Computed example of a mutant assay.
Amino acid sequence: MPAPEDQKSRGRKPAVIGLFLILFLVLSLCFFPPAGAQEYDYTINAYALYFEVTSPDNVKENIEIDLTSHTNLTRYVIYTDYPVENASAVIDLGGTVERVNVTVRKVLGGTNAVYLSFPVLKPGQSGRISLSFTTRGMVTESNGKSQFAYYVKFSQPVGVFHMQLLVPKGYAVLSPIIPSPDRVESSTDRLLLEWQREDVQSGDEFYFVVGFSGEIVVPEAPSPWLYVGVFLIGLLTGGGGVYGYLLYRERKLREESGHLRSDEEKILAILREGPVLQSELAEKLGVSKAKVSITLREMEEKGLITRVKEGRTYRVFLRE
């Protein structure tokens, strides 16, 4: 029978080999992560934007982000080209609501960076961030009507993207409406438009443009006899009324296209003096960056201009 110390000596070899295998496996995972490993620090399950036009100049904006962390997450940053005033935020940690520290700073190009600091989200933990603030610059006036414009681009995938625009009582939505809303709801005190997209990919961008009239003053209720007279006149002049309406719509379309041509002509006149950065065009024209982006995209499709990526913006050239 072999001595006991010989048996103990042979038993160490498998243990040593096992330790080397475990160490090799750990190092392999560190330097060569398996396919499907998380590319981002968190997953955005849902991203929602809510806009409420409170006056011709001001808009109340609310951003809600539902995310799941893959690391110890304590901060989230939102970038916007519009001013941020009276900002406040909370985070819902699944039944527990905590306050979020909000800091707004100017970064390169005049963009506002909104830093949201909150209690640590551990790997696998989900939270819903809700940020509210007042802003301006999204609503512009043109030819007696207002226009809301907003642009958003995502730097990572989003499960569900939702946007809502609330226009107050006394306003009527007019063309253009880009893109067509998935839902329109009208009531006595508001007009609501909603859009929703699923499986948004990194780099996807969205333009939202909605035209609406100025405030409508509701007159006092007229005499019932007036309704009778209007009804009789309508019977007699129904055909003429339809024809007049068609002429009116055609005139409005001409006015809108004429206004668009006017914007294009201004841009072409500027570009004849040399290439210009897209961000500078908005300042020269006195319009929002979103509106300039939409107009340039249409001009590029028509073959009038060429845009070349330069930093975080584009340099615009006149196509010969």
Results as ranks from 00 to 15, higher is better:
Asp6Glu: 11
Ser180Phe: 12
Val16Thr: 15
Val292Glu: 10
Thr111Glu: 10
Tyr42Asn: 02
Val53Ala: 08
Ser223Met: 09
Ser126Gln: 01
Phe118Met: 05
Ala113Phe: 04
Arg249Ile: 10
Tyr227Ala: 10
Tyr227Asn: 01
Ala290Ser: 13
Lys169Asp: 15
Pro179Gly: 05
Gly137Pro: 03
Asp81Ser: 07
Gly239His: 14
Gly18Val: 03
Val218Thr: 14
Ile267Tyr: 05
Thr74His: 01
Lys106Arg: 08
Asp81Trp: 10
Phe161Tyr: 14
Glu64Met: 07
Asp182Met: 11
Leu260Phe: 15
Leu260Tyr: 11
Ala149Val: 10
Arg10Trp: 09
Phe231Leu: 10
Leu193Val: 00
Phe32Thr: 02
Arg197Ala: 15
Ile78Ala: 09
Asn112Met: 04
Ser88Asn: 12
Leu49Pro: 06
Ala172Lys: 15
Leu131Arg: 06
Leu166Trp: 13
Thr111Phe: 03
Lys266Tyr: 01
Ile216Leu: 15
Ser69Met: 01
Val139Ile: 08
Gln278Ser: 13
Glu300Lys: 07
Gly229Tyr: 15
Ser262Asn: 11
Leu165Glu: 09
Val139Met: 06
Glu5Cys: 09
Leu21Pro: 00
Thr295Val: 14
Ala37Asp: 07
Trp195Leu: 12
Phe154Trp: 03
Arg197Val: 13
Ser175Gly: 12
Glu98Lys: 14
Leu27His: 05
Tyr171Val: 09
Leu67Ala: 08
Pro123Ala: 07
Ile91Pro: 10
Tyr151Glu: 01
Thr80Val: 12
Thr54Phe: 01
Gly127Met: 09
Gln201Cys: 11
Glu320Ile: 02
Pro14Ile: 11
Arg319Thr: 08
Arg297Ile: 09
Leu285Ser: 01
Pro181Val: 00
Leu271Arg: 03
Asp41His: 04
Leu23Ser: 04
Leu271Met: 05
Ala172Met: 13
Tyr171Lys: 13
Lys145Gly: 08
Tyr42Lys: 02
Tyr79Gln: 14
Leu235Gln: 12
Pro123Ile: 04
Leu285Cys: 03
Leu93Val: 07
Gly234Asn: 06
Thr74Arg: 06
Gly124Val: 07
Ile178Tyr: 12
Cys30Thr: 08
Val53Pro: 06
Phe51Thr: 04
Val160His: 11
Val292Ala: 02
Gly11His: 13
Tyr50Val: 15
Val287Arg: 10
Val287Pro: 04
Ile91Lys: 09
Phe20Pro: 00
Leu193Ala: 01
Phe133Val: 02
Ser88Lys: 11
Val200Trp: 00
Asp204Tyr: 02
Lys169Asn: 14
Pro222Ala: 05
Leu108Tyr: 03
Ser126Lys: 06
Ala48Ser: 14
Leu108His: 01
Glu300Leu: 09
Lys122Phe: 08
Tyr151Gln: 04
Gly11Asp: 13
Met1Ser: 12
Pro176Cys: 03
Ile233Thr: 15
Glu320Lys: 09
Leu121Arg: 05
Ile294Val: 14
Val167Met: 10
Thr295Ala: 12
Leu165Ser: 02
Gly127Gln: 01
Gln278Ile: 00
Val77Asp: 12
Val316His: 03
Val16Cys: 14
Val102Cys: 03
Met1Tyr: 11
Leu271Trp: 07
His259Trp: 11
Ser28Gly: 07
Arg307Met: 14
Glu61Leu: 07
